[in-house]
Design a protein around this nucleic acid. Sequence first.
DNA 1: TAAATAGTGTCTCTAAGACATTATCTG
DNA 2: CAGATAATGTCTTAGAGACACTATTTA
Lengths: 295, 295
Amino acid sequence: MDLLDRDGLTEREFLEQYRVGDFERPSVAADMVIFTVTNTEADSYRKLPEKELRVLLIRRGGHPYIGKWALPGGFVRPSETTGQAATRELREETGVDDVYLEQLYTFSDMGRDPRTWVMSCSYMALIDSDQVQLKAGDDAADATWFKVTYRLLRERKELLENGYVKTYEYELKLSSEEEELTAVVDRTETVKPTSASTVYSIVSNNGLAFDHAKIIACAIERLRGKVNYSDIALHLMPPLFTLTELQQVYEVILDKELLKAAFRRKVADLVVETDRYTENAGHRPSRLYRRSLED
Amino acid sequence: MDLLDRDGLTEREFLEQYRVGDFERPSVAADMVIFTVTNTEADSYRKLPEKELRVLLIRRGGHPYIGKWALPGGFVRPSETTGQAATRELREETGVDDVYLEQLYTFSDMGRDPRTWVMSCSYMALIDSDQVQLKAGDDAADATWFKVTYRLLRERKELLENGYVKTYEYELKLSSEEEELTAVVDRTETVKPTSASTVYSIVSNNGLAFDHAKIIACAIERLRGKVNYSDIALHLMPPLFTLTELQQVYEVILDKELLKAAFRRKVADLVVETDRYTENAGHRPSRLYRRSLED
DNA sequence: TAAATAGTGTCTCTAAGACATTATCTG
DNA sequence: CAGATAATGTCTTAGAGACACTATTTA
């Protein structure tokens, strides 16, 4: 191809003389919402332990937001994609390498980082609970798993001349053994005859750095959505698990109880039964399953 | 709050002395896949016109990819979000202002722009076919609507020791009155015991600039997915439309035929009937509906 | 009246919800 | 045996698929 541009240059010539302009560029960070599921202590030898959905946060050691908790992440380098940056951060933070990783959303509100112009390309990672026990307080003692709850507090609907604005107000609670962080995040859906848009905003926030409450909210909503029509939740499971455990994971993600019979029908194609069983429970043993690698 | 960092600075002092580092930053562009639906000419006075899904492309006037067709877009400025940049580009390109807009994905592969390090935060916009007729060849005669088809060509599955790789090969065809662009895009899903990932890659490409074939593929898949469980397709409709027209729009998006009775049941809650009817068709008139602004 | 589209009725099939029943382990 | 969980059976309900039938307009 030897097409010439209006200066009479070929593409090769153009690229050779090309100089990166002086216009301002943003920094781009990859921030990750790393989920896992852990067991709580069982009440008695007979009862099963309960499951908790957890997210990894890191206490900030420097300004801005010093002392606040932030998602693991860091700036994307020129030689890598945002996904590679996320993978690198994940390995640095947890030592884990081979996980489910999905890009969520790119946040670019002005002022979201008081230092300079920073966009955040956010990712969600799912780590199975076995892998993660090993590498918890890796290097920084300030990396901690927080239990997550995310609940609809209230719902408002305001009518416009043509259309409406619907606001869903969610409470995000993150609790570690020592601290409890709470944020309230609004999801505002504006619907008009031709347009429609959804905006997240932070109503209140105590303890989380930057706009990370928004990012976590976004991740939970994605996770809840996908759980219903994909095998995504299986990435939170160890290699062998019981169907009751899997159901508990679904329940803790969706924050609602499911019926056993219907649940088992629904996940039947996502798992494969093994001939192994749980042992030494104070009750009937349960068959162990693994993730199906078919389809 | 007067927490001090390790240099003994308050947050205010830290921000005052903060200097943007010298590490390299990417340019970030907002690129948009703008969809609309138009009628083809009817064969006879009796037949209904057919619908076509169309995408707006702009012929590049300079290097790189001179003469190739690209998605409308441009660099994000320091005073705006990626979404605002997309809205601005949309207005500049089509004159349209109030549309459905949704962020898709941020592409950051190295070398995706031969000039320099450029990430693309991509958006999908849906414009109703009435609005768009007006402002077609706005300023640039090189902005043209291309008819889109996106079809699965073949499917491969390769087994690994533990897991598998499944590749879906899609053919993307874009045709205007003068040109036909064809690209083949692979969606590769790698599934292993603990991880899973999906990667798009361009297998062949004639006529499209950059990695825009990937972005268009991504947009069509999002659109197809959302059509089934949301009212997203209604943003492609004019204020008044018949249910047959709406069905045609669903069919052209999904590239498959739907059953009338089932379709009408499914969209019943998304639309509101009016007391108006089509006129002067060579057959029974059809009731006109509008989009429901409830729920 | 023929050609075409508009619109509805209804049977079937599948999946999910609800709930009851049986099975099996451990202390 | 009591207490707990495991696993399955089945009735009901909701929605989609399939297809047939009736209705209404214009040249």
